[in-house]
Design a protein around this nucleic acid. Structure first.
Lengths: 163, 163
DNA sequence: GCCGATCTCTCAATGATTGAGATATTCTCC
DNA sequence: GGAGAATATCTCAATCATTGAGAGATCGGC
């Protein structure tokens, strides 16, 4: 009873806020695990497939981009893409302008499969979003974008410091 | 302007919203990778260590709890804990009431090391939080909590359906 | 054109993860 | 109380993802 007091800014300590963020990230990770298990893929392959799916496909994401986005070494990315390609989820094309680069594209079937599997998740998201007023949703969106941006900047800076 | 037809809920489409969430989760994952690289640990070990750190320590988290929270098999959890214990980050105690169970506790040193490494991340979080009014932060907190809860419920239900 | 830089892939070595089974403990129901 | 089912953790051999160094191919600046 005593600890339920404050409501606005004070009640959520930095630590609790971190816990919330970690908890959500963890839960999303587990969704990936489940999708992997259901699809006969591995957790890493799913992360890669999702990264490919959420990349703009006109250009398509490069193995190097995946390397940066998944935190893997180049050999691991090649292996992941080999597995995804062998399973028929993605295919590679070589950039004609810069022939060193490769672009990874998803197959329509992969979109459909992932879309169907994640449909209940999307419903989940919609359900939660519906609990918030439009301007509140906008606030959440702004927060998510800013947080992501700020963390990316932090990592970028750290990388620069290391060199 | 023209192609924004299927607006499910306000200005942000469901797809964009999912992208935002995935992007943030991905970024947080990469932070874990970097911490792992700097600490001589593996990505999984870091996830486990963070899970131990954010668990209430009076009881301490069990290997089974970690198994559920990381999506690993029992053998993998044992291996992870062996590594973390060997590195001096955590230690195991056996529950006296139910001697089948084990509780994992972090060493104070682990808290300090992780705390120091993640201090800039915490500053990041604070910086972003400072950009929002108290009631907006409260909205974000509520959203994070509800989203996590809903996703956890979805996974729980799926697990039940499978059986 | 040439040299350094960039991007991807190869490959052997390492080691993390799996999955079935063993062990120990608790719970349930007669 | 005691037999059997259920639960929690650990063991271990087999599998396979990941690492890390290096090769091959291509581009950009001078």
């Amino acid at each position: 009873m005593v600890e339920e007091g404050p409501v606005t800014q004070g009640p959520v300590t930095q630590r609790e806020f971190g816990r919330l963020l970690q908890g959500l990230a963890s839960e999303m990770n587990l969704l990936g695990h489940d999708f992997a298990a259901d699809s006969g893929l591995h957790a890493t392959d799913v992360q890669a497939l999702l990264a490919v799916l959420r990349a703009a496909d006109p250009p398509g994401i490069t193995p190097g981009g995946l390397r940066a986005e998944l935190g893997l070494t180049s050999g691991a990315v090649t292996a992941v893409l080999d597995r995804l390609e062998r399973a028929g989820h993605v295919h590679r094309t070589r950039d004609e302008a810069d022939r060193r680069q490769v672009h990874v594209h998803y197959h329509p079937a992969a979109t459909r499969i992932a879309g169907e599997w994640f449909a209940p998740v999307a419903e989940c998201t919609d359900r939660v979003r519906a609990e918030f007023a439009p301007e509140q949703v906008a606030t959440v969106v702004r927060f998510l974008a800013r947080m992501t941006e700020e963390l990316a900047e932090l990592r970028r800076q750290r990388r620069a410091d290391r060199a």
